[in-house]
Nucleic acid binder design. Structure first.
Length: 779
DNA sequence: TTCAGCACGGTTTTT
DNA sequence: CCGTGCTGAA
């Protein structure tokens, strides 16, 4: 143990760390050393005689949990830290449920359904009820059920809650309660829990079994919760139960960074804390150690536009630093190119490594243009998020075998693999099996086991028996072999590995590699030495329990490889980078068009913007594009309203081309001279202004906006851009996308000229930034 | 029973 | 634009 660990803290930090008994709330501004305080506090508790076995520390991401564990180990030295319970809400509760689930009638080796599994079950149910899945969209229904569970509302209550029923009636979807009920029963029958069940059932367990509650209340005598502003009512109630005896609850949060209300999180929890525990000590960490003054000032000013907040004053001793750069480009592709170019330039000019950069966006779909431009410049990068490794079809198929081996009740997995690889169990057979299982109230697996009884014969019976025998052979390995041995056997016996190997198409090759990677990861899991992870259990069940809770961001051990990182702002919470690009700052994109209907929604978007800004230590670029491709066609966007909320003093707008930019902010904030002429973006505006009626499926716009067939122009062979310096009004030019046009006028600084060009076939008048777009002089 | 070809619909954000 | 799901032919 480092003896001087208290010396490295400022006064407030120290105050938080040395508070041992009783409730404590730490309001921790961005970059104020929150993780340091939490980890030091754990060490301090242990130094003062608290047993590691009695400490529970909950985080939101596996990444945060891992980091916390590592840092505690570093402070403590030795190996006591391994006895701490540190993990995400979901993984910790999954682990506890794995010990207790039988009390609720679930197998202890219950399957964890990810979002896709859950939606698939919902879809089956919706079809069984003969409902139209275009009206009862699985996605919508799932969100509804998820919200109910996060508020601890079961199917019964849901169907009898007046307010909820009114909502569903108004949405013209009165049967959601019925679907919820069937869904819950189906999951139970399948021996499966979805993500929300891990919280919901945990609560039910503690509430229904006093002896269980008592056990864990005394085990977890000290509880710490990170990112408390992102907890939902279910999490809140569980914590309250667990902490009720000792009240040694320490929560850390920042109301300004609450960005998960869509997942049921409520900022109320943090505001409520002092009321729940009237002797609660509150400590505020207000000194920011991360960012320059410029960055922090901009952040503070932006967040000041939100109403209700906990009073605090975040300040820093750091240098002023560079101004924030605001950059406008014509298209999303140019935005990508600009960022890649700037990264290359900054690497040279300021000696940054790739790992110093992050590109942050609102939606995963935005990553594409950056990938392309980075690849073109040969800058290594890595995308976090998006389609997770474990969501790939080939991986899900393989994992389905492992799941069914552990839990034969799991119909979702059974249906996936019953005829994969093809073994002659077709649609008809599967349907019959489902019917028999419903008629006799047994699982599909049991029907298959007794196939002969149920009248299957000939080739079908043989196929079924072969399948059953194979799964049983996997099950026979369970007690004696670890997850890896079983998986290798699954790969061989099912022929999956060989089949993929023989597929020589590009996709086939990728799939083969993915399955190999899966096997490698299982191997790694089984071979990781005990002192590293808390999971001493190398069984298949233990492996399956954790992978479903793994995010893409958690994968791949090479955390510190030298690459540029790309991720959503949500995924970036808790991280910091020397250089940050926050991109796509446009209305309808950021703030998202889905979240501008209420003040609450908009304020959450603003907090998200705040999170993005405060990730930056030294340099920050904010970019937006005049137009971008969405669903394959070009749409125009106005600059994000957030950009107008920033103090001029710290912003360098001229970076993108002087007067023209300011122009855009000029006339009534409604994008002055920039838009491609004509009514092209009228449609967008009308849609935006239309009263929010999410329930009425909006008719597709029959006539496409006539922005002009931007992509139909084929550049003349040998198209090469000419030097912008040579261009002047009156010239005929060719643009790669917009075709031929005439330069009307020029503006902007000499090294960043902007031409107004009329393209008769390319959508009329456009402003072209010559440094980014390329024009060829025709004459 | 399977696979190819097309139509359609979908974009927040994550455990 | 891209992936999914449905339809129809072998």
């Amino acid at each position: 143990m480092k003896a001087n660990y208290l010396d490295e803290l400022n006064e407030q930090q120290r105050e938080a760390v040395i508070h041992i008994n009783g409730p404590l709330m730490i309001v921790a501004g961005a970059g104020s050393g929150k993780t340091k305080v939490l980890t030091t506090r754990i060490a301090h508790l242990m130094q003062n005689g608290v047993d590691a076995f009695n400490i529970l520390s909950l985080t939101f991401t596996n990444k945060a949990a891992r980091e916390m564990k590592e840092r505690v180990e570093r402070i403590l030295g030795g190996n006591e830290a391994r006895n701490l319970y540190i993990g995400t809400f979901h993984s910790v509760f999954a682990r506890l449920l794995r010990a207790e689930a039988h009390r609720l009638g679930y197998p202890n080796d219950f399957t964890i359904y990810d979002t896709d599994d859950a939606k698939s079950v919902l879809k089956t149910i919706i079809n069984e009820l003969n409902l139209d899945d275009k009206h009862y969209k699985p996605n919508f229904v799932y969100n509804r059920i998820s919200a109910a569970k996060n508020s601890l509302m079961g199917p019964e209550e849901y169907q009898h809650d007046y307010y909820v029923q009114q909502e569903d009636m108004r949405a013209n979807r009165p049967l959601i309660g019925k679907i919820y009920d069937m869904y819950a029963k189906r999951c139970f029958k399948n021996g499966a829990m979805d993500f929300d069940d891990l919280l919901f059932k945990m609560y039910v367990l503690l509430k229904s079994f006093p002896e269980v509650l008592h056990k864990y209340q005394h085990k977890f005598r000290y509880i710490m919760i990170d990112e408390y502003q992102d907890t939902n009512p279910a999490q809140y109630e569980i914590i309250k139960l667990l902490g009720a005896v000792h009240e040694n609850i320490c929560v850390v949060g920042d109301d300004a960074q609450s960005i998960y209300s869509f997942r049921g999180a409520t900022i109320q929890n943090i505001l409520q804390f002092e009321k729940d525990y009237d002797d609660a000590r509150v400590v505020k960490l207000e000194q920011n150690y991360r960012s320059t003054k410029s960055i922090l000032n901009v952040a503070n000013e932006v967040i000041a536009h939100n109403k209700g907040q906990i009073e605090k004053n975040l300040w820093t001793d750091n240098a002023d630093g560079d101004t924030i750069k605001l950059v406008r480009t014509m298209t999303d592709n140019e935005e990508g190119k600009f960022v890649a170019d700037t990264i290359a330039e900054q690497k040279l000019r300021n000696h940054y490594d790739n790992r110093d950069f992050v590109i942050l966006y609102r939606t995963n779909a935005q990553s594409r243009s950056f990938e392309e431009s980075l690849r073109r410049k040969a800058i290594p990068y890595r995308i976090y998020g998006g389609v997770s490794f474990y969501q790939r079809k080939e991986i899900k198929d393989f994992v389905a075998y492992l799941r069914i081996t552990m839990n034969t009740r799991d119909e979702e997995s059974l249906k996936r693999i019953i005829n994969y690889p093809v073994r002659g169990i077709g649609k008809t057979t599967i349907e019959k099996t489902v019917v028999f299982s419903n008629e006799h109230n047994i699982t599909m697996w049991e029907v298959l086991e007794r196939a002969k009884e149920f009248g299957f014969k000939g080739g079908t019976l043989e196929a079924i028996d072969g399948f059953v025998t194979m799964i049983r052979s996997f099950q026979a390995m369970l007690g004696k072999h670890n997850a890896y041995d079983i998986s290798v056997n699954v790969g061989k016996s099912t022929n999956i590995v060989k089949e993929l190997f023989n597929d020589k198409t590009t996709e086939g090759l990728a799939r083969y590699e993915n399955v190999q990677e899966l096997l490698n990861s299982i191997k790694e899991f089984t071979e990781t030495p005990d002192e590293e992870g808390e999971l001493l259990d190398k069984s298949l069940g233990s492996y399956l329990q954790q992978i479903t809770l793994l995010t893409d961001a958690d994968q791949g051990g090479n955390e510190d490889s030298d690459v540029v990182k790309l991720m959503t702002i949500h995924a970036a919470k808790g991280l910091e980078f020397p250089v940050v690009f926050t991109v796509g700052l446009e209305e309808t994109l950021f703030p998202s068009g889905m979240s501008i209907n209420t003040r609450e929604e908009l304020e959450e978007e603003r907090r998200l913007f705040y999170v993005a800004i405060t990730r930056a230590k030294a340099r920050l670029w904010l970019t937006y594009a005049n137009s971008r491709y969405r669903f394959g066609n070009l749409v125009q966007n106005e600059p994000s309203r957030f950009l107008e909320e920033m103090p001029e003093k710290f912003i360098d707008r001229s970076y993108a081309g002087g007067g023209a930019i300011r122009n855009a902010f000029g006339g009534g904030g409604n994008g002055g001279g920039w838009g491609a002429g004509g009514g092209s973006n009228m449609f967008d505006k009308m849609q935006k202004k239309a009263p929010a009626s999410p329930q009425n499926t909006q008719p597709r716009p029959a006539p496409k906006p006539t922005t002009g067939p931007a992509s139909t122009h084929v550049p003349t062979p040998g198209f090469a851009p000419d030097d912008p310096a040579e261009m002047e009004p009156g010239m005929q030019v060719e643009h790669q996308k917009f075709g031929f046009g005439t330069i009307q006028s020029m503006e902007g600084a000499p090294n960043n000229r902007i031409a107004t060009v009329v393209f008769p076939k390319g959508g009329g008048e456009k402003k072209i930034m010559l440094n980014y777009a390329k024009l060829r002089i025709v004459r």
